[in-house]
Structures are given as structure tokens and as C-alpha cells.
Design a protein around this nucleic acid. Structure first.
Length: 718
DNA sequence: TTGTTCCAGCTTTTT
DNA sequence: GCTGGAACAA
């Protein structure tokens, strides 16, 4: 068979990775080195050359987007449908396994997925019902604890009671939370993984079945796997030496949510026959950008080690801009973007990358005044919007009456006279009898427990759900979604809202109907789900890059985290200040600081042609003026790869020269000097900090002490 | 039940 | 300094 099309477009190391005989392999793939290409070609190689059935391929990613891209590219190369291949996210695949073997996993057939928002609600309810002070035990912290345990593969009864007050309380809550989930038939994200792991571990027959089925297991972004994910991979590949992992330890930026770079080291130990291949040739960035990235990341210890290189030439120097404040920074960036656009650059090739979402504001305002279209990534996803979640909650109740969070969510939305008192009674009974709110409702109604008014209201709600199920029975999925939206009263509710928010919500509900209409359902799905349940699972597992539909040419604004995996011709990495980037909360801990550095490395390596790095000498943060010092990462990028930019004079000069010059410069101010300021009047200089452009002077005016930027304050020495 | 006021908190995010 | 949530009043 002619397979030249598979290997012709690859470089030597890529080809080596793709064509290696079947065994465990670790592909250390640097940024922009073609890792997805290797993964895709490897899979196709195994099918076309090694003769593997598509059926025996397992490929795992972290995001739906990555999974979709992989599937698409394989399909293009193979020219056959890829449905037989298990390509998906850890969560998606775990969900599939649990559906197929719900009974063995000790789950009801109707089990539903609890997303993190719902999870938090459940925990809040739980704290209330146990009369626990949520000031002392913040629900978010409880949620974090539970998820962290599950990510480590630990159940409440696995955790040693050390007598520690905190752990003791957390364990009580963990147990109580698990009871609720089991009673309601709910599985949270971490539980999907944990349950799937336990299912395979405790059912050898099942495990052997899957081990035999998956002849090759491929993992993308392996550096992001957590303990339970790696444990799951190990079970599936036990004794088979068939784990093919692709990753980059230098791009591990999710340690804070449980990812373990150490899994890469464990892999080397657990799969002694493995081969390591480094992909170091970069096809994305110019030389200067790569040198800077290499030098920066070299400051980290505990690396596998890698040097990116390119044969594309050195390209432009990296531009550094020292802004007066955050507004000046935004002004500068937008000016440069204007120039880019004037030279016929596409807006979608430009990205502004920041450490924290709050930083987007300045840039949005500036872009808005400049009438440049932009798009901010992050924020609420489609399926996470309140109106969508409410609508879905009705649908979920149709499938599973015991879904308490959904019951809580919509029982009085729109308001139908079921108030706090009624709900308290229901919750009490549900808790003491260990039944669902739905069952508690029917029980209390039977006993004539409520006043006539409450009783009628509640009866009407139960009736509504039952009626809806009956009415929906014969309908197409999108008709069901439409009908529920109309009958449950959400649309009327939003029509009443004054501002155009209500209108937007109604539009979203209509969009949900469209999503249902376009939903790609296969009756022979491996999850054994009917169409509605499949749609609901889809909504939870894939909260929806519906925003991706917006393909207009616009400037991209996003956090450094969300930029991973993307590339742009022109990149602005902004806010390079101590306390902001690296985050003030990470500087005391070497491991966390190194993660910040990796984040910076990710940022630099997003740039293909032009990279601008900026910082502000003064920044308003939480309503207070701050004077951060430039980020340590700036010092870690050698000056030979950078140039300083002055926007006002529009002069650039090499950083190296400027630095030596500024070392010699001396302050014109001295403590004790009398100075005058156009706005604050006269005062005495108290102290001086920094030098050159960053020089700050503290002056004691009549109105109080003030820190001023010497270069801008227009102080006059008296 | 809705609107107002007060108060804490304030990286990063996918599933 | 802004936001979201909770507590409170009408």
C-alpha cells in the first residue's frame, strides 16, 4: 500500500514517532512542533500499515475541541468515518463506559451529570440543611476538597481521620454529599472518572474486555493528566505496553486543578520498554521568539529538557513597552493594532493575552473607542446560562424525577407560590426518609400536610411535569425542547423583564431549540441512551463553544490559560508585573512560581511573527493605586532578543544599551528636598524608589503622602 | 416577592 | 472599585 502521503510531510523525528513499532512511547512535543499531526498520523499509520481495526483505537484528549479536531483530521486522512474509534475526552469516555455498564457501576440507568455549578448548589443546600455555618466552611472550599479527593481516587472512607478538625468536618460533608448524589442519581465530573476507574478495577472481566479491545491507547496533553486519569490509563494498558502519550512538561499549567507533571516520570517507571522522542523543531515562531522562550524556561528546575529551534530565521526582536499605567498600556496596544490593520493585517491574527480576566476591561474600552471589533474568550458558556440551565432542568425532571438539584432549580421558577416554607418541609422529609424531593412532595400531599394554597401550587407543579412528559412522548427532540420552553412559563417570565436581558434570554431559549434540532443522534450509540438523555448528557459534558460560531474577523482577547494550543501572528502579552504575573499568590512557592513561568512560556510561544510584552508602572488594582515592579520574567529574557519601545517619541532602542545607561543615571531627587506639584502644591520628598523611567518619589504634601512617578509627575524642585 | 442595601472578596478553567 | 450574594424592608 502506498503510504507516502502519511510520512512525506513529516520531519525525521516526527516520522520516527509515527512509524515506530507498536509499544509504549513518550513524545515530548514542544510548542508548535506538530504534536497533533504526529498523533493523527500515528493513528492512521496503525490502521493503514499495521492493519489495526479502527475499533481497537482509543484516543483521549482533555477538551471536546481537541477531540473534534483529531477526529476531523483522521477522517480527512483515512477517508472513512471514524465512528468506530473511541476518540473523546476523559470525561466523555468515562461517561460512555458508565452508561454501558450502569448496573455494574452501581448507578441507576437514568443517572444524570452534575456540573460544577449544580455541584456548588448541592453543597450550599447541604450546609444549610445541616445547619453548618457557611462563613466558617465556605461552600467553594468544600467543593474543592471533595473534587480534590476524587481526583486523587479517594473516597471518604479512604481518608484517614487524623483527628484534624478541618479534615474531620470535610469528611462528614464529603459523605453527606455522596449520599445526596447517590439518592438523586447524580454524578459530578470528578465522579465520572473515579467511578469509571473503580468499575474497571473491580470487574476483571470487564477490564479484560476493554484491554483486549483497545490495542492502542493514545493520550494528548499528557502533562495535564491527574492521578485518577493516569490510574485509569494504567488499568487499560496493564501488561500491554501500548500507551502512546504526547505532552510537554514545559506547558503544564493546570497543576492547580490536580494535573500532575510527575505522571510523566511515573510513566517512564511503569512502562520500562518505552521510547522517548523529542519534537524540538518549531514551525510556528521566529528565532528570536524561540530563543527568548528557551532562555526563560531554562530557569525552571525539574524539567525533562528541550530546546526549540527553527530554520525560519531570527525575525523581529521582541518589543518591550513600559507603560505609565494600565490605560497607557491599553492605548499603546491599540495603537499598534491600528498600525497592523493599516498594513492589511487580519484582526483575527492578533491576540491580547493577560493573566487574569479582570485585565480585559481597559483593552475592551480602547478597542471600542477605536471601533475595532474584538472578541473576549471565557465567561459564560452557552449551556451554563441561567435560562438554558432552567430549561434543561425541566427536561431532566422528565427523565429523572429524583434529580433534586433540577427540582430545586425550577420548582418555583417562574414563581408559582412554592415558597421557602413549603420547600423546607419537603427538604426535611426528603432528608429524614432519604428520598427525593419529588417523592417527598407526593408523600406530603397524600398526608394533606400543606395549606390549601401551598398544596395546590405544589400539585400544579407535579402535574405540569407529568403532563409535559406525556405530551412529549411522541415528539421529536427539538419539539420537546420547544414545548417545554413554552409550557413551563420561562418565556413569559423573561418577556416581563424590562431591559433587553429578557429578550436575549428568549433568544437563547430559541437557540437551544436549534441546538436540539441540529443534534447529531445515533440510535445505536454506545451509551445506550435515548435521544433526550443523550442531549442532556451532551449539554453537561460539552458546555458549548457555541461562541465559536462567531467567525467575524476580530481581535482575540483571552487569558494565557485559554491561549494554550492556539497561535497568532501578532501577540501582545500584557501586565508583566510582579504580583500580577507572576500572580502574587504564587510567588512564595517554587512549584507554583515555576507554573507561572511555564504560563509565560506558553504565552511567548503563541506568537508567530511579532511579540509585544508590556507592563505598567502604576496600576489601579481593587480600587487602589499600586506601583508594581516589572515581572521577574522580563529579566529572564536576555536583552539581545528584545527592544524597548517608546510610543510618544516613537523611537526604539536595544534594551541592552538602555539598561547599562540607566544603571549610571542618578536620581535628581533627594530626601528632604522641597518640591512643588501643579495639583498637590508644595511638599517634602520622603523617599525615592527605582530609577530612570521607573523612578518613584514619595512626597509629603499638605493633603497627605503620595507616591509619584518622577518621569510624569512634573515636580519642580524648589 | 421584589427591590434595596450592605458586605466580602478579588488568579487561572475543563469536564 | 466593582460585583455578586445574602440579608432585610416594604
Amino acid at each position: 500500500m502506498d503510504v507516502t502521503f502519511l510520512i512525506d510531510s513529516l520531519n525525521d523525528t516526527q516520522r520516527q514517532a509515527v512509524t515506530a513499532p507498536s509499544k509504549s512511547m513518550l513524545i515530548l512535543a514542544g510548542a508548535g512542533s506538530g504534536k497533533t499531526r504526529v498523533l493523527v498520523h500515528r493513528i492512521v499509520w496503525q490502521i493503514q500499515v499495521e492493519g489495526l481495526s479502527p475499533h481497537s483505537i482509543l484516543a483521549v484528549t482533555f477538551t471536546n475541541k481537541a477531540a473534534a479536531e483529531m477526529r476531523e483530521r483522521i477522517e480527512k486522512l483515512l477517508n472513512i468515518p471514524t465512528r468506530a474509534m473511541w476518540i473523546g475526552t476523559f470525561h466523555g469516555l468515562a461517561h460512555r463506559i458508565l452508561r454501558r455498564h450502569a448496573q455494574q457501576a452501581k448507578l441507576p440507568d437514568t443517572f444524570q451529570i452534575l456540573d460544577s455549578d449544580d455541584q456548588l448548589r448541592v453543597i450550599k443546600r447541604l450546609l444549610k440543611s445541616m445547619s453548618i455555618d457557611d462563613k466558617k466552611w465556605p461552600p467553594r472550599q468544600v467543593q474543592w476538597f471533595i473534587n480534590a479527593q476524587k481526583d486523587e481516587g479517594l473516597r471518604a472512607n479512604h481518608i484517614a481521620d487524623t483527628g484534624d478538625y478541618f479534615v474531620k468536618q470535610m469528611l462528614v460533608l464529603y459523605k453527606a454529599y455522596e449520599d445526596i448524589c447517590n439518592r438523586s442519581g447524580l454524578v459530578d465530573f470528578a465522579e465520572l472518572l473515579l467511578r469509571a476507574h473503580e468499575l474497571l478495577r473491580d470487574n476483571p472481566d470487564l477490564l479484560h474486555f476493554y484491554q483486549r479491545r483497545f490495542r492502542q491507547v493514545h493520550v494528548d496533553e499528557f502533562q495535564d493528566t491527574n492521578t485518577i486519569q493516569y490510574a485509569w490509563l494504567r488499568l487499560l494498558t496493564e501488561g500491554q505496553d501500548n500507551l502512546f502519550i504526547v505532552g510537554d512538561d514545559d506547558q503544564s499549567i493546570y497543576g492547580w486543578r490536580g494535573a500532575k507533571i510527575a505522571n510523566i516520570f511515573s510513566f517512564q517507571k511503569h512502562y520500562p520498554n518505552h521510547e522517548i522522542i523529542r519534537l524540538e523543531q518549531n514551525y510556528r515562531s521566529t528565532g528570536n521568539i524561540l530563543h527568548a522562550a528557551n532562555k526563560l524556561i531554562a530557569h525552571n528546575s525539574n524539567r525533562m529538557g528541550k530546546q526549540l529551534w527553527t530554520d525560519a530565521g531570527e525575525g523581529e526582536l521582541i518589543s518591550l513597552y513600559s507603560a505609565f499605567n494600565e490605560q497607557d498600556e491599553a492605548y499603546f496596544v491599540v495603537e499598534r493594532i491600528k498600525q497592523w490593520i493599516e498594513k492589511d493585517g487580519l484582526k483575527q491574527d492578533v491576540a491580547i493575552l493577560y493573566r487574569s480576566n479582570a485585565q480585559s476591561r481597559q483593552f475592551e474600552e480602547r478597542l471600542m473607542t477605536a471601533a475595532i471589533p474584538y472578541r473576549v474568550y471565557g465567561g459564560l458558556r452557552f449551556f451554563e446560562r441561567a435560562e438554558i440551565k432552567s430549561s434543561l432542568a425541566y427536561l431532566r425532571l422528565l427523565s429523572n424525577r429524583n434529580d433534586d438539584p433540577s427540582f430545586e432549580r425550577v420548582v418555583n421558577t417562574p414563581t408559582r407560590g412554592i415558597g421557602a416554607k413549603t420547600m423546607d418541609s419537603l427538604r426535611d422529609l426528603a432528608r429524614s426518609e432519604e428520598i427525593s424531593l419529588w417523592d417527598a412532595s407526593t408523600a406530603l400531599l397524600k398526608q394533606d400536610f400543606f395549606t390549601a394554597r401551598a398544596s395546590n401550587a405544589l400539585k400544579k407543579f407535579l402535574q405540569l411535569i407529568n403532563d409535559l412528559e406525556f405530551l412529549c412522548e411522541e415528539l421529536e427532540l427539538f419539539e420537546k425542547v420547544k414545548l417545554v420552553g413554552e409550557k413551563c412559563g420561562l418565556i413569559e417570565l423573561y418577556k416581563k423583564e424590562k431591559d433587553d436581558r429578557g429578550e436575549a434570554r428568549i433568544e437563547n431559549l430559541e437557540e437551544l431549540v436549534n441546538a436540539a434540532r441540529g443534534f447529531d443522534y445515533h440510535a445505536d450509540n454506545e451509551e445506550n441512551l435515548n435521544e433526550l438523555d443523550m442531549f442532556l448528557a451532551h449539554a453537561s459534558l460539552e458546555s458549548g463553544e457555541m461562541q465559536g460560531a462567531n467567525s467575524d474577523d476580530c481581535i482575540q482577547l483571552m487569558t494565557l490559560h485559554s491561549a494554550k494550543g492556539l497561535e497568532f501572528k501578532q501577540v501582545f502579552m500584557v501586565g508583566l508585573e510582579e504580583g500580577l504575573f507572576p500572580s502574587g499568590q504564587s510567588v512564595d512557592d517554587i512549584a507554583r512560581l515555576e507554573e507561572e513561568r511555564r504560563l509565560c512560556y506558553v504565552g511567548i510561544t503563541r506568537a508567530m511573527e511579532q511579540l509585544y510584552i508590556s507592563y505598567a508602572e502604576s496600576r489601579r488594582l481593587y480600587g487602589k493605586e499600586t506601583y508594581p515592579s516589572p515581572s521577574r520574567f522580563l529579566r529572564e529574557i536576555p536583552a539581545e532578543f528584545t527592544q524597548d519601545v517608546r510610543i510618544r517619541a516613537n523611537i526604539t532602542q536595544p534594551s541592552a544599551k538602555k539598561q547599562s545607561a540607566s544603571l549610571a543615571s542618578q536620581s535628581t531627587y533627594r530626601a528632604g528636598q522641597k518640591v512643588s506639584h501643579p495639583k498637590f502644591g508644595t511638599g517634602l520628598v520622603l523617599q525615592i524608589e527605582g530609577e530612570g523611567k521607573q523612578e518613584k518619589v514619595q512626597v509629603n504634601f499638605n493633603g497627605g503622602r503620595k507616591w509619584l512617578m518622577a518621569a510624569y509627575a512634573r515636580l519642580e524642585i524648589l
